[in-house]
Write a protein that binds this DNA or RNA. Structure first.
Lengths: 223, 223
DNA sequence: GCAAATATAATAGTATTACTATCATATATG
DNA sequence: CATATATGATAGTAATACTATTATATTTGC
């Protein structure tokens, strides 16, 4: 994938003003990715971001209500981008099993090289997704945010892959449970592999995570 | 399980003073469970807890450094209790497959009735685990806390069940990855089922989550 | 039963966070 | 060129996340 100038569709309910539309907006996105990665989400503040980009804090608030909605925006961007990659990886592939396998690869392989779509560093964004994305929906107002459509890109992506599962086996009962288990599980295992190795069997270097989840999907679907 | 007066071993690195040892300590634990459930972890503060228990904020700080370590303490308690339940459920069971199945049940079934071990409401604590426990280790200082032993009870529990997997199939390659996928996945799916149903196939009422993860484990291990 | 140690209460204080508000200035658009 | 819109500069506020100090209970050891 080269520098394609595609636009990742994220949803207008996630920001007050589209960051894509201005230089400041893009600076907010690209630098927030760097800063969240550097400090962790809890220590990240709009104040610190404002110092990094040399713009007043109040200007950032014109784009995002608060740092939580910014995180939701970033995760939504990531899932939208992931779905795009799945589409690219599976078009023109006729055999359903092969198609599903390609999708699982996109979902479980680590992102090692920045594919530089516009101003987003996908390698670092992926690190944030692994470390922080669960915080986007583990809040007291999930239901409210869900109603507003904050998690649509995630749902679309999961449902697209779940549909591939049904293509392989139309009788399989739990396609979405299977895929969301894989998506979240793969991130979780990457996190464990780096920080809590006693909870996994994945060693750095080799890619047992993709192998494990590929086995898992086909053991379940081709039963 | 009746009111057994067992003690759940949690680890001294998790608190400044053992809350088990005093009335105030126990009040802190039991009321923090209620308040975190009520407000969500982000809105929960020691100030609010101090008002609820009618003790000054500074007294709470004598037990826990901050609300994060309190959450780590609660999750550690939960895993220790879970392991205890697994031990109870599997003693005197000879057949390895049956043993593993019982353990998976303990890990995936919802906790519906308060088993009232001491001052901890396990039903509400389980709700907290489902909603908030990922925040216990998704922080910038996981590594440091891990070194201190903050996640030992979780590791012990996972490794105990992983050992049961190996009992069923000594050649299985990824026992810990499998079990941590199940544990985290089961909680995740309960959360999705309630808040983001588009990401799961589990409907309220029936227990497809336990069924799904039991299938999953045996499809992987008995391959 | 009393002294000493320990735990808790009462109160105050501080830096940082998470915003909101106002007004001036720059830039784009029609 | 007028108007709208975006950004900058600056200020302010309530709440958060602590720390510190002193007084008062309560427990424990002799």
């Amino acid at each position: 994938m080269q520098n394609l100038s595609i636009k990742i569709n994220v949803g207008s309910e996630l920001c007050l003003k589209n960051p894509d539309s201005s230089e400041l907006g893009q600076k907010i996105i690209s630098n927030s990715i760097l800063l969240i990665d550097e400090l962790g989400f809890e220590s990240f503040t709009f104040k610190k971001l404002s110092l990094k980009i040399n713009s007043p804090e109040s200007s950032i608030y014109r784009y995002f209500e608060n740092k939580h909605t910014l995180l939701v925006y970033l995760t939504s961007w990531f899932w939208s981008w992931t779905e795009y990659k799945i589409v690219i990886a599976t078009t023109n592939i006729e055999v359903s099993i092969e198609k599903l396998e390609k999708a699982i690869h996109v979902l479980t392989k680590p992102i090692l090289v920045d594919q530089s779509i516009s101003y987003v560093n996908e390698v670092i964004l992926n690190k944030i997704i692994i470390a922080e994305s669960v915080k986007a929906f583990h809040t007291k107002d999930v239901d409210e945010e869900n109603k507003k459509g904050c998690f649509e890109t995630y749902k679309y992506m999961v449902n697209r892959v779940a549909a591939m599962v049904l293509e392989v086996n139309p009788l399989y009962e739990y396609p979405r449970m299977l895929i969301s288990t894989v998506v979240e599980g793969a991130h979780q295992q990457r996190f464990f592999s780096e920080h809590l190795p006693a909870l996994t069997d994945s060693k750095k270097g080799e890619d047992s995570i993709t192998e494990f989840y590929t086995q898992l999907v086909f053991n379940m679907v081709l039963k």
